[in-house]
Design a protein around this nucleic acid. Structure first.
Lengths: 342, 342
DNA sequence: TTGTACGCGTTATCAC
DNA sequence: GTGATAACGCGTACAA
């Protein structure tokens, strides 16, 4: 007497046989139970248990032409900023039964083909871009074949994509203005790379605040970093060796701010007495610096959540206007900025 | 004159028609070009370009019964520790044409079913566990139906799984012993949660070093944290209010160490003079504390890389013995630990 | 070397 | 309410 082997993956046919019905009925029982008589439904459900049946989702996806998978293109997953956004994406996706596939494109050209393939072959239902660019080129025509896309955190000037982001310009303005209200005149700025749109907006916000005073802008107070601790530290070295060093610095990220604080202290300055610093992002770590970092709150988790929400709206066709969303970003005042000494 | 519409996804049939051959030939041209005459191959390749054909990977995966997707189960993706490991996973996976699906299981029971479904329905080819447990229960029989699994960073006592990890016990011993060599006797330990195997090993390493001196172990020098800054800070409060406060603390993570340093400084201590601290992980941030954190180097990226390597070995059948791998983890000496004052 | 024909597991369209 | 049957796109026996 051969036992029906349990370990081989059971298929719908097996269930049908066990229940003494057709595969069509099994499928209906699973998809639209209300269209099946209670009697057969129970038979089928029992059979499903008996043979240990699980729907073959690959086959199902294939048939339905949807994968329930979202691709998230992220510039650098080990950046705490991005991982928090992904967290937000995940939460919403999971709720709706979607999966998030992470595409970490550390400027690796190789991966690009893999991604675009994934997209064109409809292996993903949609995508979220955390960086500022698509990781590949798309012509206008090709763009129409792309699945729904939303940008998170950044803003794409060329591609007209729905976006969820904060008002970088105003946030930067507020941060700088806060330093001004404290009495600072010589305020420097450790900026992000030029090619990043949000860095440009933050820089403009800084400039706007500085220009507002009527004084001319000191270009040498603007130093570019790349969002690493090290670049923040380097920038401080440069700034403090200026003939007229700044009394305050607005940094485009907490990481650079932390690097800056570290370097300033190493050089013997007392913070915030000798130098005020304001960051941007409000990372968890920003609370655990001494002095605790005054910074702009960047709602990373919320950005992720809203981005996924926006995407799902499009996927589920509820969306009439897939407009962008602007999230709040307040200044979190802690202890790293105070009135200048003199 | 109707133009053949470009935007609809081209299928193999379209290519076949365009090239004047059968779909079988098209498939062969793509899969085993050497089995096709140069002439027809060129025709087909041209046709592929013309109609803009991309293989439908869902169909392909379905047919081949492999998804080229690896599921990574991670306790908390916003923890910098895990995101670095994921980075390592990604790199290797991408090289081999695999994708990494992130399953962030923040103790959310709901997701579990989704995961197990994913697994049973062969929608993933393998999985990497970054936590210490499977996010679901598996009976012994069910285990045989599971795809290849490897654990990263942790170690599973029940499940016999290939693992890549460091020697937590020895590392902890070394860290503690280093403090002893510096002259410390009153060494406390801010440990991780009890239920985590690696925390237990680190604690044992600490105990082993402490017991080695012949003195009795002061249980009140062992405080449990949960790998957050806050728990590190709280632990320090407790320890410093002891009648005989420690002169040094070994922390089970850099994050807790940073929280601890922050709190100690807030309480007016001068570091490292009044209190030596050693961390565990060697996070990027550990370099940018003052004093710079002495810590155990945890090769996160390497752990991820090796874990994926181990997994791919199994998937590609090259593996005879899917043994575990032990990675080096040296003590990185910086400035947060020095000889005690007295 | 190339074409024909079948099957993977599911869902959907018909009849009954 | 239920059962045949076709179809999704691809890969591969098998036959030519």
């Amino acid at each position: 007497m051969e036992q029906k082997q349990q370990n081989a993956t059971a298929t719908m046919k097996d269930v049908a046989k066990a229940a003494g019905v057709s595969t069509a009925t099994v499928s209906r029982t699973l998809m639209t139970p209300e269209k099946v008589s209670l009697q057969t439904r129970q038979k089928v459900e029992q059979a499903v248990m008996d043979v240990g049946y699980y729907p073959h989702s690959l086959a199902r996806s294939y048939k339905r032409n949807e994968s329930k998978t979202i691709l998230a293109i992220v510039p650098d997953i080990s950046d705490p900023f991005f991982s928090d956004v992904i967290c937000g994406l995940e939460k919403v996706a999971a709720q709706e039964g979607y999966f998030v596939l992470i595409g970490d494109c550390k400027h690796q050209q190789k991966q690009e083909n893999a991604f675009i393939n994934l997209i064109i072959t409809k292996q993903i239902d949609g995508m979220v871009l955390l960086g500022s660019n698509l990781p590949f080129d798309v012509s206008a025509e090709e763009q129409k074949n792309l699945p729904p896309i939303v940008m998170a955190n950044e803003f794409s000037p060329e591609l007209k994509l729905p976006t969820v982001h904060i008002d970088n310009l105003t946030s930067a303005f507020n941060a700088t203005h806060y330093l001004q209200k404290l009495g600072h005149k010589r305020i420097a700025c450790i900026a992000g790379p030029e090619h990043m749109p949000h860095s440009q907006y933050r820089l403009e916000g800084y400039k706007k605040a500085m220009l507002r005073t009527g004084e001319k802008l000191r270009e040498y107070y603007i130093v570019r970093g790349d969002f690493t601790h090290e670049s923040g530290a380097e920038a401080v070295k440069t700034l403090l060796s200026l003939p007229e060093p700044p009394t305050a610095i607005f940094c485009h990220s907490d990481i650079m701010a932390i690097g800056a604080m570290w370097q300033a202290k190493k050089l013997g300055l007392t913070l915030p007495d000798d130098l005020s610093i304001v960051g941007f992002d409000n990372l968890e770590q920003a609370k655990y610096t001494l002095p605790a970092l005054t910074t702009i709150n960047h709602p990373r988790d919320e950005i992720g959540r809203h981005a996924m929400l926006l995407l799902l709206e499009q996927l589920q066709g509820n969306s009439v206007t897939p407009g962008s969303r602007l999230l709040d970003s307040d200044l979190i005042i802690r202890e790293s900025a105070k009135a200048p000494k003199s």
